[in-house]
Amino acid sequence: MNASLEAGQSGRVPLEFSDHHGALSILGFWLFLASDVVLFSCLFAVYASYGMRTAGGPTPMQLFHYGPALAETLLLLCSSFACGLCVYQLRRRSTNGTTAWLAVTMLLGLGFVAMEAHEFASYVASGATWHKSAFLSAFFTLVGTHGLHVSFGLLWAASLLVQLRRHGLNAVSARKLYVFSLYWHFLDIIWVFIFSAVYLVGRIS
C-alpha cells in the first residue's frame, strides 16, 4: 500500500488511489466483500442442504425454466460489462463517458431486478410460497438476498449519478465509483454461482 501511495504523489496511479484515505476506503470495502462472501456461502450451504426438501411442494425441476434465468443472467453480465466500461471512462477522466456508462449499468440492472421480481411473483401466484417447503424458503432467501443487494446497488448508483453531476470527477467521487464497481462485479460473480447451483443444477437433478 505504501508503495502505491508514494507512486500516487507522482501521478502514476489512478485517481481513486491517489490519496491515503481513498486507498484505505477501498481496502475497507474489500474487507466488507470478504464478509459478504461468508454470508452468501452460508446461504448457499443452506440451499444445498434444502434443495431436495420440497415437502410435497414443487420441485426445482417443475419450478425453474431456462428462459427467464438465462435472460436475467445476460442482463446482469452485460450490466457488469457496462460497469467495467464506466471505470474505463473514469480512468480516461471523462465525466460524460463515466456518467453514460453508469446509466447503462443501471438500466440493465433495473431490467434484472424487474425480471427477478416478475419471476418471484409468478412463483407465488402459482402457489409456490416460501411457507410451502424448506426448499422454497432457501430459494427465495438466497436469490432474494442477492436481489436486495442489486436493488441497493441501484440506489447507490443513482446517488453516484447525482454526485457526478454535482462534483465531477475528483479523488472522492472516483473512489466512490470504483468501490461501487467492486460491489457490482461481486454481485455478478455471486449470480454466476446462483445460476449454476440453483437453476442449472435444478434442471438436471
Partner: peptide, 10 residues
Amino acid sequence: SSFFTIAHGG
C-alpha cells in the same frame, strides 16, 4: 418461511 419447521422439510 419454513427453515426450521419440521412439517415443511426444515
